[in-house]
Nucleic acid binder design. Structure first.
Lengths: 157, 157
DNA sequence: AGTGAAAGATTATCGGA
DNA sequence: TCCGATAATCTTTCACT
């Protein structure tokens, strides 16, 4: 992965709707060279896909909650049930198993605190949790899907 | 926003590369009705944009850290400086001002713990922080850009 | 809301450096 | 092996009915 690949990736990370013409011009490439690079990056799996981002408040999920969970059970079967439960709940957009004193960190989007409470009830109805601690986002200072390319490996075979 | 809009939004949330033909077929619409709906959703700002998602581990940022911050200063000018600092750091992909005992929650992606430490040093070099507490993601159980449409308002004028 | 045509974009193949 | 050009196909966009 060279500098031109990085340039292309950065452009399409910000805007997946850029045409090949725009991309190739901004990257200083011919249309075809550009197309082949992007195709290669897709085939290699570096590009995972293109998605459409929606305005959360316009679809009435303007409140974001972070939920820190602790569990008493640390078995594989518990994790399996937990994973299935959270994957089935569309309000939950992120679930991470963590180092440290918190076992799991969840991110959820909901309309308001009342909806959060219903989500909470649904969650503890499906799985046993030792401790649940929630905080709400008052202000979103930064939130991006753009990843830094500064660490990308020089080449690959 | 009716049921067909939701269907369309859900399709394009998952895959922004779907063609109008595919979309209109799956939504049970003519090509043009489909195109007009999507255009309207864009113009109304419900669709924020299309982005390309990259595989974090392939670009060498396979480690995610959540960083809980507390500050002694609670002034507008501090927040301003803090916001500028975090926006300038590409490893930091999310920054949220929170309710509760933690003032700010940050999400960052880095190659490894050593890189995290350099990021940490950079951060505390630019701004004064009372307390910093970091946890690392051991396992990503769910992480999606897809928002739930269950709460979307029925109509809008 | 649907048709169809013009404009534009994507993809594949081919020839050359 | 990589790059550029050309051509065929598919998509998007929009005016008109």
């Amino acid at each position: 992965m060279d500098e031109t690949d990085c340039k292309l990736l950065n452009l399409i990370q910000h805007d997946a709707a850029l045409s090949l013409d725009e991309l190739s011009e901004r990257a200083g490439l011919s249309r075809n060279a550009c197309w082949r690079r992007i195709k290669r990056l897709e085939d290699e799996g570096i590009i995972k896909g293109r998605v459409t981002l929606l305005d959360a408040s316009r679809i009435n999920v303007g409140l974001t909650a972070f939920i820190a969970l602790r569990t008493t059970e640390h078995s594989a079967s518990w994790l399996e049930r937990f994973s299935n439960a959270v994957r089935d709940i569309p309000e939950i957009i992120g679930v991470y198993r963590m180092t440290g004193d918190v076992d799991y960190l969840l991110q959820a989007v909901i309309p308001d605190v009342a909806a959060y409470d219903r989500l909470y009830q649904r969650l503890i109805g499906r799985i046993t949790l030792a401790d649940v601690s929630s905080s709400f986002v008052m202000q979103e200072i930064k939130s991006t899907t753009v990843l830094p390319l500064d660490y990308a490996p020089e080449r690959r075979g």
